Computed example of a mutant assay.
Amino acid sequence: MLGRYMMGAVAARTGDEMSGPALLVIGLAVTGSPVTASWLLAGLTVSAAVGGPVLGVLLDRVRRPGRLLGWCLAGYAAGILLVFGGLGRVPDGVLVGVAVCTGVLGPALTGGWTAQLPLVTGTRGLSRATALDSMSYNVAGLAGPALVGVIAAVGGGATAVLVSAGLLIAALPAAHGLPARDDVLDRRSSRSIRMEVSAGFAAIAGNGVLRRATVGSMVSCCGAAMVVVSAPVLGIRLSGESGHGALLLAVIAACGLAANTALTLLRRLPRWETVLAGGTAVAGIGMVTMGVSGTMWGAVIGAIVVGLGEGPQLTALFAVRHREAPERVRSQVFTTGASLKITSFAVGSALAGPLAAYSVEAAVLAGAVAQGVAVVLLIRWRSDGG
């Protein structure tokens, strides 16, 4: 069962990671406007803050959450295909609106899927399964953008969009095969969705461990976005090739995957709060190295360190959520957390653009500062008992 879950998770998340860059490439190719292309990408992320909490409520209410995840996968695939089909034929504003509506379903491909892991493994194998699940994010983060680059170079941006949608559809059998929930009658509530959404936020805000993990991960994700946006510019700055910037992102994802693989081999897993703060600190050190290196090889070393921190950081975040989330609102905690991180990423991306245009080194170092702030929040709140 876990193997099938992992295959579906990798397919869904790789398709998700491909969707934004693929729309960016095809949007630029068809319209010739970087503004339109960037707005399509922004549309897929900005609406996650709305979609995550609502999807969480619905996933917690249904007996077979996998079927709802399947509908979300199909809807997301249909949305990106609609945008692709409308390019050059439909006003840009309408297409951006379609992208925004599609992005509402995005948290289902991340937190919504991860929230179902206890149904697959039970409580005994959850810790190591969480590390494996985190690896699927690293694989997707590594393979998604790389596939878009290769496919777009060989077959064009249109092919990249179609492959992205195909991967999302390929994950449908795994989603539909997820186990049913036995306690669905206890989970159904006469309260409105708005009240249930409030209950999900209250579960995060009222639990000190969840609160600091959520806020710390949001600040960290905002900083990570600055590095992602800055990477192509940094590649040009250090080597004259923007493609070398994409290589830096691939190095980060690959090293995150390696670090999470090492975690699964440990006989005794460390305390997850320590891993969360430590991984964030290591990522910040790597970003400093990237920002001050002055050479491409120095930036690669920094990217290696960033990945070694970000991989365990994500695993620790999921482990904390699994352990601390109340069973009745587990999906809400995961999808709300995912939506908040995606929105933080969008904020970081928006801030990084003008900053990178002024000084790409400053933009990368700003990402490192965000990691430092996140570490302070994680450690201070922990010492205060909050």
Rank of each mutant, 00 (worst) to 15 (best):
T343Y: 05
T123F: 08
G86S: 12
L168P: 09
A180S: 07
A325N: 08
A9M: 05
P91W: 09
R267K: 11
V288R: 09
L41K: 13
D182L: 06
G3I: 10
A319H: 05
L162I: 13
I301Y: 15
A153D: 05
D182A: 13
G51A: 12
A346C: 09
A303K: 02
A356G: 11
L265Y: 09
L167S: 02
P118C: 05
A180L: 01
G206M: 04
C255N: 15
P53F: 01
R4Q: 14
T335L: 07
P107F: 02
P118Q: 04
E361F: 10
P326V: 05
V288Q: 04
S189Y: 02
L178N: 00
A352V: 01
A42D: 10
H176P: 08
L167Q: 02
T264D: 04
M218L: 13
A74C: 15
G367H: 09
L24G: 02
R211Y: 12
G156S: 05
L238F: 06
G367Y: 05
L269S: 01
V161Q: 14
S239W: 05
G149W: 00
C101N: 03
A231Y: 14
A253C: 01
A374S: 12
L263C: 08
H176Y: 15
D133S: 04
T280I: 13
Q313E: 15
A171W: 00
A281L: 15
E196V: 07
G70K: 06
R4L: 14
A165E: 05
A74F: 13
A49E: 11
Q371F: 13
A362I: 01
R64L: 14
L55C: 10
Q313Y: 09
V215Y: 03
